[in-house]
Simulated assay, not measured.
Amino acid sequence: MSKKSFAEVLTDLRYGTLHDELTDSLQEVVNACVETGKAGKLQLTISIKPGKSGELEIADDIKTKVPELTKGSSIMWATPEGNLTRSDPRQMTLEGLKIIGQEDRPLKKV
């Protein structure tokens, strides 16, 4: 009698939907690891419970640890009224300065 491989059993569980979910979860973890440079994890737990008539109830649980990108922070200052502002309210401003926008002409390639 030949043994049925784990891969064959895996594709039979929940009529193949477990295999599909594992495939999607693995791809999600791999892509996040590549994007963030951090470690991820995919864990499959299979529980087997014998029944009274010789049947086996197979239950599964998929857990993933998907790494996330590091979020940046903001630096702000509080005004005397308690409002937040992106510029230091104590900093003096220079009068007569103007913002110069981009020119409409195309840039030259060097």
Rank of each mutant, 00 (worst) to 15 (best):
M1T: 06
K3E: 05
K3Y: 08
K4M: 04
S5N: 04
S5C: 01
S5P: 01
F6W: 11
F6Q: 03
F6L: 07
A7M: 06
A7N: 12
V9H: 11
L10N: 03
T11Q: 11
T11H: 07
L13V: 11
L13C: 02
L13K: 00
R14H: 12
R14F: 10
Y15Q: 09
G16V: 03
T17N: 10
L18C: 06
L18Y: 01
H19K: 10
H19D: 14
H19W: 09
H19E: 07
D20I: 11
E21Q: 11
L22Q: 00
L22K: 01
T23H: 15
T23C: 11
T23E: 09
T23N: 11
D24I: 12
S25Y: 05
L26T: 11
L26W: 13
Q27T: 15
E28Y: 11
E28I: 11
V29W: 02
V29Y: 03
V30A: 15
V30Y: 13
N31E: 14
N31I: 11
N31V: 07
C33D: 03
V34H: 10
V34F: 13
E35M: 14
E35V: 08
T36M: 09
T36C: 04
K38D: 04
K38G: 05
A39K: 08
K41W: 13
K41Y: 14
L42E: 05
L42I: 09
L44R: 10
T45Y: 07
T45I: 12
T45K: 15
I46Y: 07
S47M: 14
I48F: 13
K49P: 09
P50H: 14
G51Q: 15
G51S: 13
G51F: 07
S53L: 15
G54T: 09
E55A: 06
E55G: 08
E55D: 12
L56D: 09
E57L: 09
E57V: 08
I58W: 01
I58R: 01
I58L: 06
I58S: 01
A59R: 10
D60Y: 09
I62W: 00
T64N: 02
T64E: 05
V66G: 00
P67A: 04
E68A: 07
L69A: 05
L69Y: 02
L69N: 02
T70M: 04
S73A: 07
S73W: 03
S74K: 09
S74R: 14
S74I: 09
M76S: 08
M76D: 05
W77H: 07
W77Y: 06
A78D: 04
A78M: 02
T79A: 01
T79C: 00
T79L: 00
T79G: 01
P80T: 02
P80E: 00
G82K: 00
G82Q: 00
N83H: 08
L84I: 05
T85V: 03
R86D: 07
P89V: 00
Q91T: 10
Q91S: 10
T93E: 14
T93S: 15
T93D: 15
E95S: 10
E95V: 03
E95N: 12
L97K: 06
K98L: 12
K98V: 12
K98M: 13
I99R: 07
I99A: 12
I100E: 15
G101K: 10
Q102H: 13
D104F: 03
D104K: 09
R105S: 14
R105L: 05
L107R: 06
K108M: 05
K108E: 05
K109F: 06
V110M: 05
